[in-house]
Structure formats: structure tokens, C-alpha cells
Design a protein around this nucleic acid. Structure first.
Lengths: 337, 337
DNA sequence: CTGTTAGCGCTTTCAG
DNA sequence: CTGAAAGCGCTAACAG
């Protein structure tokens, strides 16, 4: 049917065009050092033969792979990964780079091998992306190349990192409720001790403080961060002596469970109780009834930031103090508040 | 802080080990042609120096990239992409291959360039993945390399393809309801004329036929495949003269909307009306109340199949008639039926 | 402007 | 078993 192309080389092109290989290389690389005439001539032959440069050879010579590695700790069932990949992909493509992707499935050995594979392939940098904001520890081999941590960080902060600004996110979420006039705001938090739960709680408290409202521990509870957790949270919080008129849920899944409980309790959203989530899982948030107001996690932006940083940060002075960037979580206003 | 490693070559390690470069290469490639003594000797030096082979050079020599390209038409907000990537990734990794990922964002020019980029990089094959089952048309340059179409196909079927078995999926979904004793089963279909809507409807009808039940057009309706579509569908179907006792929804999002409408109508699931979805969007299906029974789309399996096919199908005779594979959609039993 | 030449780092005969 | 040598396809001086 179709034969494997005999792999035309630059020499063949040169021969056919009656020029030297150097010239061909020059037109290939858009070097201005070529007369329009020969240039056209060569281009002609190239098109005719359907020549394609072989990146391996070029790479060997120039030592530039034009590739950047993306290592994910796990591609969870959450849709977060796609946004990270999209962001990284778009930014990479815009700069003529290609993405090498490896998923470690949280296996430490795979991680080590993955780093080696990328080193061997001379990637121009590695992005190590976690599926939720957390501290990580990486093999030392990672230091052989410029790396940026996405949605994670190392305890000693000696690697550049980009994560969501959980505190501000929590504050904005709470303030959104405050601005609607709510003064008793419940917070159904994740019970896991992670940056997201700490940060959002801190933001919640900061918002209260900004409004000169006391922090009432009776208004916050902690559960597993899924629908059932949100469901339980509502029953607990709404049964307090002085129940909240608004609910800040740690994430959209919990908000989904909260919706169910609220409905069972005969409470309407947002009329009786306003609710705001976190994460903006489109699939969920936009389709709940009523559509859920929530905070968007900046996955796309983090992916973008990571490759741009990698491609720009060649300045060794920067490495002395790796940036620890926090990106904003935009408020997505819908009908639940 | 950390210097760029001077890039040790095979020559350097040959010198240090007091052997020829050929020997080093041989131990690197596990060639049996080396005496255990020298072998050990060389390995020692390699470990000591922290030598890493340079894949570009090896690639240039051997013409094997050990890479396979994954082109996605768009990484939608659906979580499907992650499963495809995971499946492909796991299969590739198992065979020592690495994934090159490019997302075209549905841009035809990007697609052409993407294919070229992968060709230049000598990938061993390309997977072109769509985000939902559909017919596609690809640039002819794709024929320069072995390709497999994932969740899509070309009209003339001259490229291998792997897609979900929509018909069987629709049939199993319907039979699941039939087996529960339901005899009037509503089908809320997607109003888009796509393989999924045609196939699932065909499956629905086949199941009815197998039970000797007449096909009643009054029992099927078509809407946009989101929550609001499912919501509308319920109102329409349940108001018919002889309403259904079970609902087969085109997808989980529609089922989610159906839940809301059913609840408004005071109908309990599955007691009053059973409902089954399609897609198994974990995030949704598992967390609805009650958890939704649904059919799983085989994204992971398709990703796996695609790379395994690519890595195995070098036989030119196969290319004469490219396989058009359909993978099963497993039934995910939960509490809604 | 353009041809020639010397490798990039690695594998693979080809002789020992 | 193991050196030596010849490139893989391309770029980057270096002379014209």
C-alpha cells in the first residue's frame, strides 16, 4: 500500500538542487545568507521530494531538543489533569516546543526512570505536576535539570513552584457571601490536613476578620471531601442553635452533597441558604440546580506558567532563590449565592 | 548552585575504564559479547561518573525513537482525555516507549504541523484521538506513518480505528432495565446525529426486540446532551399518556438533570422510576443520590489498545484492511435501577 | 553568498 | 571477546 519513505537526506536535496549541503541547511534554518534565487531553487526541490529534516541529527548537533517533559504523579479521575496539560501544551506549542508526557502512577521507581528518560532525551526542563496541592519529595536526580513544581512544592523550597492561592481563594469565596449580606457563614472543610484545607480556612477567617465578625468554631466542620461529606456537613451545621444562612464548601463535590441535604431539609438555594463551592468542576458546578457559584482552580494557568518559566528562566541568579508562585483562583459567579 | 553536567560521553567512560568505545556500547546494550570482568569494570565507571546515554545520538544511529505520538483534537472539559492518556501512557511505558503529546485545539493547521513534528521526531506511530465518537478527516501526510484512530474513524475506513461499541452499550443498558421487570422504558437521547446517538438508539431497539416489545416512538425524545436536556426529557416523557417506569439517558449529565426533574415530580429513584446513564463520569455518577447505574466508556482500554496495536502491527498485510475495532462498554451497577 | 569539512555521541561491522 | 573505524543526518565554522 504505502512504502516506508527512503528517508531523503540533506545531501540528496543538495545534489538535486545542485548546491552544497551547507546551503540547504541554511535555507532550512532561514539563514539570511542565501540568495533568493538559490533559496527558491532549494525550496522547490524540498517540496518536490517531500523532504523532512530529521530531528535526531539536528538535536545531536545543536544539543537542543525543543522538548519539555511533563511528569504527572497520577492522572486521577479528576478532570484537573486535562487543564494542566492543556495549559502546558498551549504554552509549549506557542514557543515551538513539544511535550513529553509521563505519568508515574505515584510509583517512585517509575519516577526515577521517568526522570532519566527525560534527561536522556535532553528535555529543556521538567514540570512535575501533582493532582492536588501538596508537599512532595523528589529524587535528587531531578536537580540535574531545571524543574518546576506544579500544584506542589518541596519542603525546603529549593525548587520553583506554582500553586493556587488557597488563602485568597478562601477569602474571596467568603467575602462573596459576606457581600450578599450573610453574617453567619458555615464552612464545610475537607478533613484532610492539606494546604487546601488549611489555606481556605485561613482565608475564611481572614474574611470574617475583615468584616469584624468573630470566628465561630460551631460554624465549621470537617468531612471527607466528597458528596457525602457535604451532605453530612449540612445536617450538622443546620442543626446548630444558630444555623448559618450561607455555606462555603471546600469543593464542588461537597457542594453537590450539600445541595441534596439542603433540598431534603426543604431549604431553597440561594433563597434560604446560599452556597459557594471551590474547584469549578464544570461538569458538576454548571449543571447543578441552581448552577453553583465557585472558585476556579488555576490549572490551565499553572501549566502555562510552568512552561513559560522553564523557557525563560535560564538566569542562574534566579535559581538561588526559586520562586514560589501562587496563582489566583477566579470567582465563577453562578446562581447559588 | 548546580552546574550543567559536562555531558560525559561513551568515549570518556571507555578511556576511564581502559577499554574501547565499542565495548562500552556493548555493555550498555546488554550484549552478551562481553566478559563479566570487563562488564563489571565498565559498569563501575558508568555508575561512578553518572553517565547517561544520549538518546539523540542513539536515535540517529539506530533510527528508533522509542516514542509514540498522541494527537488529541481537543482536550475538552470532559474528563475523558485523562483516561485515554492514562491508557496509552501505561501501555507505552510497559513497552519502554514514551509519549509525545500534542493537542490541536481542533485547528487544522496545527494538526498538519503536529504531524510533521512527530514525523521529524521519528515517532513509531501516531494515535489520533477524538474526544467523542465521530468521523474525522485527516491530512494525507498522516499516511506517511502508521496511525490509529481513537474514538473516531475515517469514512473510507482505510485507517485502523478503535471506538466504543455503542450499540451493545445501548442494548445492555436497556436490558438491564428490562431484566428488572420494566416494560415501558423511556430513552432520552442526544439530539445530535452522531454515532453515539444512533448506536445507542439501535441498541435500545434491539433490546426491546429481544424481549418482543414493540418500539414506541412516544417513549423516546431527543435533547441537547446536558443536564437541562435530561430535565426537559423527563417532563416530556412522564407526561405521556402511558409514562415509562424506567429511563435510559444518553449520558450521565442528562441523567443528572433527569434526577432533578424526577425529584420535582415527586418520583423516587429507583422505586418509582429507574434510571440508567452512560459514560460513567465518576465525578458525577458515583455521587448522585442515589448513585447512578451507567455504562462505562472504554477510554482507558482504547488508549491501551491503540498503542499496543501500533507497537505490534508492523505486518504490512494487516494494512490492507485496517481493523475497525469496537470495545465493550462495561455496565457499572449502582443504586439507580 | 556558497562549497567543503569536521565532528555531535553512539552503534556496528570487521578484523584481530 | 574486544579495538578500531566508519558513518547516521545535520550544523557551523572556515575558506573562498
Amino acid at each position: 500500500m504505502m512504502r516506508k519513505k527512503p528517508s531523503v537526506t540533506i545531501h540528496e536535496i543538495a545534489r538535486r538542487a545542485g548546491v552544497g549541503v551547507g546551503t540547504v541547511s541554511r535555507v532550512l534554518n532561514e539563514s539570511a545568507q542565501v540568495s533568493p534565487a538559490t533559496r527558491e531553487q532549494v525550496l522547490q526541490v524540498i517540496a518536490q521530494v517531500g523532504y523532512r529534516p530529521q530531528s535526531a541529527a539536528k538535536m545531536l548537533r545543536t544539543r537542543k531538543s525543543h522538548a519539555i517533559g511533563l511528569i504527572t504523579d497520577e492522572i486521577a479521575s479528576t478532570p484537573y489533569a486535562v487543564d494542566i496539560i492543556r495549559g502546558a501544551q498551549d504554552a509549549a506549542w506557542a514557543q515551538g516546543k513539544i511535550l513529553l508526557a509521563i505519568n508515574t502512577n505515584k510509583n517512585a521507581n517509575v519516577l526515577v526512570t521517568a526522570i532519566e528518560a527525560m534527561l536522556d532525551r535532553q528535555v529543556e526542563g521538567i514540570i512535575y505536576a501533582a493532582m492536588y496541592h501538596q508537599a512532595v519529595t523528589l529524587p535528587t536526580s531531578i536537580h540535574a535539570i531545571s524543574t518546576v513544581l506544579l500544584d506542589c512544592y518541596v519542603e525546603d523550597r529549593n525548587l520553583p513552584s506554582v500553586v493556587p492561592d488557597e488563602v485568597t481563594g478562601g477569602r474571596v469565596a467568603t467575602e462573596t457571601l459576606l457581600q450578599k449580606g450573610h453574617r453567619r457563614i458555615g464552612f464545610i472543610n475537607d478533613f484532610n490536613p492539606i494546604p487546601a484545607s488549611f489555606g481556605r480556612l485561613a482565608g475564611y477567617q481572614a474574611a470574617l476578620a475583615a468584616y469584624n465578625l468573630p470566628f465561630d468554631p460551631d460554624l465549621v466542620c470537617e468531612y471527607p471531601s466528597d458528596a457525602s461529606g457535604g451532605y453530612q456537613g449540612v445536617y450538622v451545621l443546620m442543626q446548630r442553635a444558630n444555623p448559618p444562612s450561607a455555606l462555603f464548601c471546600f469543593n464542588d463535590r461537597m457542594a453537590m452533597g450539600a445541595y441534596d441535604a439542603l433540598r431534603e431539609l426543604g431549604l431553597r438555594i440561594p433563597h434560604d441558604v446560599a452556597v459557594i463551592g471551590f474547584d469549578n468542576q464544570e461538569m458538576l458546578a454548571a449543571h447543578l440546580r441552581p448552577p453553583l457559584t465557585t472558585m476556579q482552580l488555576p490549572h490551565y494557568a499553572m501549566g502555562e506558567w510552568a512552561v513559560n518559566y522553564l523557557l525563560g528562566a535560564t538566569d542562574p541568579s534566579v535559581q538561588a532563590n526559586p520562586p514560589q508562585v501562587q496563582l489566583d483562583c477566579p470567582l465563577i459567579l453562578r446562581a447559588s449565592v
